[in-house]
């Protein structure tokens, strides 16, 4: 889940999950979390290039990944970087 150096230019467009507004979607890009916490989140469904939708902003926030709803503390959400995809239909 770490960023590929080859596409660093794209990283400019990445924002922490906490920057997305309610209803906005983002594609999971990278996570700055430590190994253990990252693995837990991966197992919970925050993997690959999943599309994340913000159900509830603020701290803590609620996000939806596929069919999973996760409640994330602010400190965790701010470590997750996503590519904004705009509002969902």
């Amino acid at each position: 889940m770490t960023a590929d150096p080859a596409v660093v230019s794209e990283q400019v467009a990445c924002v922490p999950l906490t920057h997305l507004a309610v209803g906005e979607r983002g594609r999971l890009w990278a996570s700055n979390l430590a190994g253990h916490e990252r693995r837990v989140l991966e197992a919970m469904g925050l993997v690959g290039e999943s599309e994340i939708r913000i159900i509830k902003g603020g701290e803590p926030c609620i996000v939806q990944v596929n069919s999973t709803r996760l409640a994330l503390a602010g400190t965790v959400a701010s470590q997750i970087l996503v590519m904004p995809l705009g509002k969902s239909a």
Binding site: V40, T68, R69, A71, L72, A73, G74, V76
Partner: peptide, 9 residues
């Protein structure tokens, strides 16, 4: 420790 929990349906 900050929370990460799944919200069940």
């Amino acid at each position: 420790r900050p929370m990460v929990i799944e919200l069940p349906s």
